[in-house]
Amino acid sequence: MIDATAPSPPVRASRRRTHLDHLLVFAIIIALWSLATWHFGTYWVSSPWAVAIRFVETVASGELLRHAGYTLSEAALGTLIGGVPAVLLPLLLRRHPVVVAILDPFMVGGYGAPKLAFAPLFIVWFGIGMESKVALVVTVVFFIVYFATLNGVRALDARLVQTAQILGASERHVARSIVLPAAIPSIFAGFRIAVPYGIAAAVIAELISANRGLGYLVQNGAMNFDTTGVFVAVLMATLLVQAAISIMNAMEKRLLRWRPPSEPWLETGT
């Protein structure tokens, strides 16, 4: 039998071609960026090289990582405080549809509300420290994850619950062994959207008012006409988002081994 894990020669060749294409796109982006730097001057558009050097320097000095650490803790804390009740609430309310119906217009309103517009309000309430950023992340994360989980619980296959009950499962077993695992893909889908958004929310709150964090670095760089500093901070924020996505992908792969493999996102469908 053929080993299914080893790609056949044509597949390998096309994969190599794709990697080359990726490098090519990367090179084009860097070239365009350099062209912009050359045309407008480093004062307006910092060069890729200067950004790379500054990035390494500020990572080495620990300054960049310290600010990234603040932003990351705000986002992580907010995701935790907002995400945990957002997952638990639909699971606990599964047998109480009336309560879900009562909450619904308020949740829909919260979901649709422009949460980022609340940032000044949170600064009024919690000051310019970490608390106001965490509060903003909490409101951003909570509603997204709540509706994602609720969708998962609602889409639950009633026949699986019945089967489990016939096999002798108590309500507790049903909640733990049927409802929760069935909702996990939806919960993940929620966090996948909520976490990058939460990191962005922390950065935005720092942009408005803060004395530390990546948003503060951006604002500070702009104030000193230091475009290199601005770019480095934005790059770091983007890397945080990518890291969060990679971690979630790895967790999802582990937790959802039982699912048939699905197509990647931007698949062409041809």
């Binding site: 794709t18 294409d21 990726h22 090519l24 796109v25 990367f26 982006i29 990058p196 990191i199 962005a200 950065v203 935005i204 942009l207 990546l214 948003g215 951006v218 604002q219 760089g221 702009a222 104030m223 475009t227 601005v230 770019f231 901070a233 934005v234 924020a237 983007t238 988002v241 990518q242 996505i245 996102w265 931007l266 062409t268």
Partner: peptide, 21 residues
């Protein structure tokens, strides 16, 4: 396929952070 990683990466940029610049 060629632009996919670039799209996914730039999508993660907190766009608001570009405002000061």
């Amino acid at each position: 396929e060629a632009v996919e990683p670039a799209v996914l990466f730039t999508m993660g940029i907190p766009k608001y952070a570009l405002a000061p610049w």
